[in-house]
Design a protein around this nucleic acid. Sequence first.
DNA 1: GCGACGTTTCGATCGCGATGGAAGCATCAG
DNA 2: CTGATGCTTCCATCGCGATCGAAACGTCGC
Lengths: 231, 231
Amino acid sequence: MTLTTDISGPNIARLAALLADPARAQVMLALMDGRALTAGELAQAGGVSPQTASSHLSKLIDGGLLAVASQGRHRYYRISGPDAAHLVETLSVLSEEEPTARIRTGPRDAKLRTARICYDHLAGSMGVRLLDGLLANGALAGDDSNVRLTAKGEQVFSDFGVDLGALKRKKRPLCRACLDWSERRPHLAGSIGAALLDRFLDEGWIRREKGSRTLIVSTEGLRRYEGLVRR
Amino acid sequence: MTLTTDISGPNIARLAALLADPARAQVMLALMDGRALTAGELAQAGGVSPQTASSHLSKLIDGGLLAVASQGRHRYYRISGPDAAHLVETLSVLSEEEPTARIRTGPRDAKLRTARICYDHLAGSMGVRLLDGLLANGALAGDDSNVRLTAKGEQVFSDFGVDLGALKRKKRPLCRACLDWSERRPHLAGSIGAALLDRFLDEGWIRREKGSRTLIVSTEGLRRYEGLVRR
DNA sequence: GCGACGTTTCGATCGCGATGGAAGCATCAG
DNA sequence: CTGATGCTTCCATCGCGATCGAAACGTCGC
């Protein structure tokens, strides 16, 4: 019984404390590709024992950052929704701010910085250039940080196989600029960003690298991608 | 010496830990009105002794969330920039998500929910309606979460006394949708949002309540405000 | 039924960090 | 100079939470 005395303003601290533990932070980052992982896999990702991970996971559930689904003897954990993902991404951006002599930019990072998943949409330099290109060719309008769909864009995305009618019925915003962790410039998020990546994955033009957020783009995928960006 | 072994991904945890302490969180919230406060005032805001506060403040400085300026025998602390403010606001939104039987909505809250400062721009129901109104009358374009300036908007804001040329020279985006903590809908941020509030404050149409984020709107201020929203 | 596996709960240990007393510095008033 | 004020540094105490062994629970395969 702690009583927490008074609630003046939102208790940021409680929420921040959830992400203040290295193991829990790693768990959140591991789930940022939008997939659901088992408790055991997350224990490994966090570098802790299964017991410890279990404790962390239940705290993240209680805090509303994760959702869980039982399936047989496995329990699949995933990020609860776009809000939670956005919080993690915001933290990622700011925590990379001051390099303090950051040396690493190995070849393995290179792929990750080119194309990766950010929760449910394309990120990395390809994600950034996607937003740039769509703005340049008039499918989207606005400046870097504020985007909206144009009439031409409706045509473009419909041609690409995106069901815009279905997206508009959802509460989630169509376009959204999400600050890119590695590029430090915005990429395309929102339901359209998610729908585009879905198409790429469904058609096999892009596939996930085994256990990471890295995306692998086929030549056909690159062709389709350029088709969207150029026009 | 802790060595931190490896750096796989940004170390969110270290940044989150800064905000995980109740005293530090209160300090950040106290500074969300954009003013600079002394160490002593912040100690009181955090509910801790001056020694303890000093320790917290230096940690927040090291973490890049605060900036400090010495002036005589006082040290004035302020939030380091828009990024840090945005992080705190993001946390506020998400930490208010699940009400868990939240009962409080007292009269003192009412004023705060009507008009308050969010770092450097207008927030609360007036901030939300400002964005809505400017979108409706065509000064801004886009949907709720993605806004851009229109030709008509350039006229409107210039007439209101905003130096758009100066704003455009800055790196900061002109318009930005900032999710409102109390309304759960976006209000107008970015350099235009900041410039508008500046005008209101400079002219005395709006003034700050003594030691809080609450804003007090004069009848003249309300008239000017309606002039912007209606048109 | 049995054992193997994935996961959670319980319990005890242990270390990090928040805390405030005391002292040290700097600035200001006189 | 002296004394007061604002802030920081040093230091010892202390409590919370992260951790993992051991055990319990639930599911799968046989």
